[in-house]
Design a protein around this nucleic acid. Structure first.
Lengths: 222, 222
DNA sequence: AAGATATAGTGTATTTTTAACACTTAGTAA
DNA sequence: TTACTAAGTGTTAAAAATACACTATATCTT
C-alpha cells in the first residue's frame, strides 16, 4: 500500500455513455464487467483516473481499452459522487456522453472487459452501479441538445441523405417531423454541402447526398 | 499518514461561484485564502470533500463555513481536473454555481478563510488556481439560462417590482430590454403574484409589488 | 396649491418565425 | 407500360417576437 495521504481520498473514475445509430435505432455501448463488484453485469465503459492524466483523456483511454471505440464526439455530462455508489470505496465518477457515427465504429473489446456490445436504448440489460441513472441523464441531455445545437450530426456517417438526417432527428426527439419543414430548417443551418452524387436505395427516386461542412464542429444555434 | 491506497488517489474539492445582486450590480462572493498555496489571494469558496459526504453537501458546507452564506439556489457546473491545477497534489474540483437573493445574505467569514467579500464581476481581483476560468464558465451558463429558465428569479428578494425584475434581466444579459415586452413576457410565465401593496420609492408613481409563486422552483420554459 | 419631475403602467401594428399541408418527380420492379 | 416507392418541392395561416409613445400617480419644490 504505497500511496499514503494525511486525509482520506476518494477514488475518481470516468464513465462514458456512447451513443450510435445502428439498425435505425439509438443504441448504447456497454461492457460486461470482468470483476467484482457487479461481476458479469453490464456497465458503462470507464475506469479509474490515472494520477497524471486529464479527465477527458481518461474517459477516452478507458473507452478505447475496453471497447476499441476511439474516434468520437464527447462532452462532460455530470459528476456523480453519492457516498455509497460503489461498495468497495468512495468513488466519484465524472461522466461523459459521446456520439459516434456508425461508419467509424469497430468494436474490439479489450482486456479490462470481458465483452462489449451495443444495446438498443429501449432494451437495456440490468446495469451495474448507478449507471441506469447516468444513461437517463445522458439521453435527456442529448434530446434537449437537438433543439439548440448541431450535435445530432455527430451521429451521421460521412455522407448521408436528408431523409436519413431527418430520421436521426426523429429518433432522438422521439417524434415525427414534417418533411418540408425539416429540410428547410436543415439547409438553413448552412452546414450541409451537396456532394453532387446520388444514392440509389430501392425502387424509387434516388436521393441527393450531402456532407457536413466542418464535420467535427458542433454549433449552438438559434 | 494513516490513509493508504493501492493506487494513487487524487484529492477532490468542491468550489462554488456564488452570485448576488448588490448595488445594482452582479457580484461574486470570494474568500481570501488563509494558507498556501496562493496565500492571501482571493478564491472561490470551497474545499476538500469529506469521505462520507455528498458532493452537494460538501459545496454547501464549505460555503457556510467560509462565508456564512447558507440559503441559496445551487447547480453543478462542471468538473475541472487538469493535472497541474493545484501545486500541492492532484486535485479534481467539482464546481457549482449558486444564486442568492440580497435579502438572504449575511456574511460571516469563518475560520478557514481570513476574509470573505463581494466583488462586482467587472472588477474581480487576481484569483487563485484556475478560478477565473470557473467564474467565466459560470457567468456564461447563468446568462444562457436566463433565456430558457426562471433561474434569474433566484436573485430576487421575497418581494419586488417588475422594474426591479427587468433590471436584473438586463444586468444578467447585459442588454437593455423593452419595458412593455418584458412585462408581457414576465406575467405570461404565471409565476408572479400581485401582493396588492405598492412600493413608494422616490418622487414618482409607486410600483405594484409582486411575489414569486413557488419561490424555490426553477422552471425550464419555452 | 400649482407646477416640475420621475418612474409606473399600458396597447397596437409590424415583422419574423413556426407550423400545417399535397402533389410531382425519378427511379426500380413486375 | 404500369405499378410502386421514396425524393423533392412552395404556399398559406397562425403564433411569437419586436418596435414603438403616451398617460398615470406619486413626491418635491416653490
Amino acid at each position: 500500500m504505497p500511496f499514503q495521504y494525511q486525509y482520506p481520498h476518494p477514488a475518481v473514475t470516468t464513465d462514458v455513455a456512447v451513443f450510435a445509430l445502428r439498425d435505425q435505432q439509438l443504441q448504447l455501448l456497454l461492457i460486461r464487467r470482468a470483476r467484482e463488484p457487479y461481476k458479469d453485469r453490464w456497465a458503462l465503459p470507464g475506469g479509474f483516473l490515472e494520477i497524471d492524466e486529464d479527465l477527458d483523456s481518461c474517459a477516452k483511454r478507458e473507452l478505447a481499452e475496453e471497447t476499441g471505440v476511439a474516434d468520437l464526439y464527447m462532452e462532460q455530462l455530470y459528476t456523480f459522487g453519492c457516498p455509497d455508489r460503489d461498495p468497495r470505496e468512495r468513488v466519484i465518477s465524472v461522466t461523459y456522453y459521446a456520439l459516434v457515427s456508425a461508419d467509424k465504429l469497430s468494436l474490439s473489446p479489450g482486456s479490462d472487459a470481458a465483452e462489449a456490445a451495443w444495446f438498443p436504448l429501449q432494451r437495456l440489460p440490468e446495469l451495474a452501479f448507478d449507471h441506469a441513472e447516468i444513461i437517463r441523464l445522458a439521453r435527456e441531455r442529448l434530446a434537449a441538445k437537438t433543439h439548440y445545437s448541431t450535435i445530432a450530426f455527430q451521429l451521421m456517417p460521412e455522407t448521408f441523405t436528408l431523409s436519413e438526417l431527418q430520421s436521426v432527428y426523429e429518433i432522438l426527439r422521439n417524434e415525427k417531423l414534417d418533411k418540408r419543414n425539416f429540410r428547410k430548417w436543415a439547409l438553413a443551418l448552412n452546414r450541409l454541402e451537396e456532394i453532387g452524387d446520388k444514392r440509389r436505395n430501392g425502387n424509387h427516386r434516388p436521393a441527393k447526398i450531402y456532407r457536413l461542412t466542418a464535420p467535427d464542429r458542433v454549433d449552438i444555434i438559434r
